[in-house]
Design a protein around this nucleic acid. Structure first.
Length: 275
DNA sequence: GCCCAGGTATAAA
DNA sequence: TTTATACATGGG
């Protein structure tokens, strides 16, 4: 990865591919939107930003060196080499080559743990456009005004609300789940920060003490919110894919990059199902 | 209108 | 321990 800073912002080149659409539009995050010109704008840690792609360069608008080092490098996982990760997955499970090759340029973002937890609670039995709508209303209603957008409200703020207060979000049955998650996180009953390096089974178990958090939401929180690349979100699609197309593959056999492998498997399965 | 969304709680076998 | 259903809402 190479970066320089110009009047436009940070200009990045990566040896492994970075595809904006595959990264921001693959269902791992809900606060990035595509512009007609193919660029994306989003809000991360209370900062509104636009990222575009041109001639193999990735440009983070208005990003100075300090912003890059303190936020974007980690958020976009730019220190990782996805080419070598892909190779490792294929060498562990050769039959995954077709899945790995089916999509390029996905990066696993380092989202904030609480935002990921809350977003994936909202995601259950829901579709991406509506998830984005609910998250957006959550931020507009309870986040801080940062000028041209709103920050994601922290757990303490939501913990002090009642289920009725969340009615404007139109989150349906998920409203009480959001409140329960906020209260458990706010009180420390669920400690997200320690999940950066605690045994993954313990993390999963602790997350699942929250009402509305099952195996899928727990794993998504760990993968996308805590960058636990060994987390493996299982849903009906993955179960189906693992029992048919990729029979014989287990989470354990995928090792430390199970979570990324899961992205490739999921994408490949969707393509196959669409045909 | 109808179907269903990268699920989960709850109540039954 | 596994299997069926309801769940709020609205996008396509």
């Amino acid at each position: 990865m190479n970066v320089s800073f110009t009047s436009e912002g940070a200009v990045i080149t990566t040896e492994d591919c970075f595809d904006l659409k595959n990264t921001f539009d693959c269902g791992q995050c809900f606060r990035w939107d595509e512009e007609p010109d193919g660029s994306y704008h989003g809000i991360v840690k209370g900062k509104y930003t636009r990222i575009s792609s041109k001639d193999g360069y990735i440009i983070i608008s208005g990003c100075c060196e300090d912003d890059f080092n303190s936020l974007w490098k980690d958020y976009l996982d730019l220190d990782a080499d996805y080419n070598s990760i892909r190779s490792e997955i294929i060498s562990l499970c050769p039959q995954l080559r077709c899945a790995v090759d089916s999509i390029d340029g996905i990066r696993i973002l380092r989202q904030e743990p609480w935002e990921a937890l809350c977003s994936f609670i909202i995601s259950q039995n829901n579709n991406i456009p509506r998830i984005k709508g609910i998250v957006s209303r959550l931020c507009e209603s309870f986040g801080s005004d940062i000028g041209n957008a709103y920050s994601f409200p922290d757990a303490d703020k939501i913990a002090a609300l009642s289920e009725a207060d969340l009615a404007p979000l139109r989150a349906g049955f998920r409203a009480r789940y959001i409140i329960d998650a906020a209260r458990k996180v706010s009180s420390g009953q669920v400690d997200l920060e320690k999940m950066h390096d605690a045994p993954i089974a313990d993390c999963r178990k602790e997350l699942m003490t929250i009402t509305g958090v099952g195996a899928k939401v727990a794993e998504c929180t760990l993968l996308y919110g805590l960058h636990r690349l060994d987390a493996f979100p299982i849903d009906v699609w993955m179960k189906k894919a693992l029992s048919t197309t990729f029979s014989g593959i287990t989470v354990e056999s995928l090792g430390r990059y199970a979570g990324i492998a899961q992205q490739y498997i999921f994408h490949y399965s969707r393509i196959a199902a669409a045909q």
